[in-house]
Computed example of a mutant assay.
Amino acid sequence: MRAFTPLRPFLRAPATTFSARSFSSSPAHSVARLILTGRLGTDPELQATSTGQDVVKYVVATSYGPRDNRQTSWFRVSSFQPEGPQRDHLLSLPKGTLVYVEGDASIRSYEDAEGKRQSSLSVVQRTLEVLKRPHSDSFPPEGTQ
C-alpha cells in the first residue's frame, strides 16, 4: 500500500476544479496602487476640469538616500473629493505638511508643444492622512529663547 500524503487527492482532481479567482464572481481587473509618504510641495489648489468638475491638486515630495546624496521625487496628485469638510480640510493643509497618501496610478503618454512624445504619471487620491503639520513661524527657532 502507498503512504497517504495530503497532496494525493489534489493530484487526482480534474483541472476544472481549480479556479484562479474562485473567491470572487466579478471579472479580474488590473490595479496600480501607489502609497506615498512625503511632504506637500505646494499648498493644495482647487481647480475645475474641462467638464466643470472640481478637483483639488497638490504635489507630494518624497526623499530617499543618504543625507549627502539625497534624491527627491515629486508626485502630482489629484483629489476628486466632494464638497464639504474633507475637501476643506485638504485645502487648509499648508506646504510642508507630512502626509500619507494612497492613490490609483496610471501613466499617460502625450505629445508636447514641440511634438516630442512625453509620458506622465497620474495619481488619483483614494485616502489621505496627515502625519505631521509643519512648524509654525510664530514660534521662535530652537535655541533662540
Rank of each mutant, 00 (worst) to 15 (best):
Q53L: 11
G52W: 02
A15Y: 15
Q53V: 13
L34N: 15
R21L: 07
A32C: 15
G65P: 07
D54I: 10
G38N: 05
T51Y: 08
S79F: 02
Q86H: 09
I107K: 04
A28G: 12
P66T: 03
K116Y: 08
A113S: 14
I35V: 08
S79W: 01
H89N: 08
D43I: 11
H89L: 10
P44Y: 07
E45F: 10
L98Q: 03
R117W: 04
S79Y: 00
F80H: 00
E83G: 15
V31E: 06
Y100N: 14
L46G: 08
F75Y: 08
E83R: 12
E102P: 00
A20G: 11
H89V: 06
D104L: 09
V31T: 14
E114G: 10
P94F: 02
T17W: 08
S106A: 14
L40H: 08
L98W: 04
G41C: 06
G65M: 03
S109R: 06
D43T: 08
P14Q: 11
S50M: 10
F75G: 01
S24K: 04
A61W: 05
R39W: 12
T42M: 08
N69F: 06
T97R: 03
S78T: 06
F18Q: 11
T49P: 02
G52R: 06
D68T: 13
R76Y: 10
S19T: 05
H29V: 09
L36E: 04
V60L: 09
G41P: 06
T97D: 01
G96Q: 00
V101M: 00
S92W: 02
P44W: 15
T72K: 03
V31L: 10
F18V: 13
I35C: 11
K57T: 05
L98Y: 01
I35L: 11
P85V: 11
T97C: 00
S92F: 00
R33I: 09
P94I: 00
N69A: 13
V101G: 03
L46Y: 13
L40N: 08
E45C: 07
T62Q: 04
S25Q: 13
G65L: 03
F75C: 14
Y58T: 06
S63W: 01
V101N: 03
S119K: 07
L98R: 10
D88F: 08
G84I: 00
Q86C: 05
A20W: 07
A28E: 10
V60Q: 04
Y58D: 06
R76S: 09
S50W: 07
S19L: 13
G103H: 02
Q47V: 15
Q86E: 08
G52A: 03
S24E: 07
E45Y: 13
L34G: 14
V56N: 04
V31I: 12
Q118Y: 04
V77R: 01
K95A: 01
P27Q: 13
K57A: 09
E102F: 00
A113G: 05
N69D: 11
G96E: 02
R108K: 13
F18R: 07
S25I: 05
S73Y: 11
G96T: 01
L46A: 12
A32G: 14
I35F: 11
L98A: 03
V31R: 12
S78L: 07
P85I: 11
P44I: 03
K95C: 01
L91Y: 00
A48P: 10
